[in-house]
Amino acid sequence: MQDRPSSQELIAAVAQFLNRELAPTLSDPRQKFRALVAANVLAIVSRELKLGDELTQTEWHRLNALMGDDPSAMLRAGAPAENLAQEIDVMTRALCVRIRAGEADDSEFHDAVFAHARQTVIEKLQIANPKYLERVLHDGR
């Protein structure tokens, strides 16, 4: 058990330093922009620490349902998140091969693949850019 500040609190402290202390002192607009990008990257890391494991679980279950009869699907619920990520990677590669081969061109499988791909992208944006996600979904997408 580590002392406080927690990893989240440390990240927040660095982001605050970049945004409020460093960026205003930089006269080179390029460096200033990079300081703001750096702060934004830390916000992504912070959201991933908070939501990442749960979203990985969700994606793994969804992929298993989608690819259940695919040899790449390894049904081992409750494995540690790191293994889940590896399994997601293997199953997603298999899915991509099937899409490119035209196996998801139509029928129910197409709809299921489309829904899965869309949900996965939404979950990535919940971490990478929730503001953008909200704006675009609001737009009727």
Partner: peptide, 8 residues
């Protein structure tokens, strides 16, 4: 990490 925006 912005690729997902364009994918959506």
């Amino acid at each position: 990490r912005r690729c997902a925006e364009v994918e959506l």
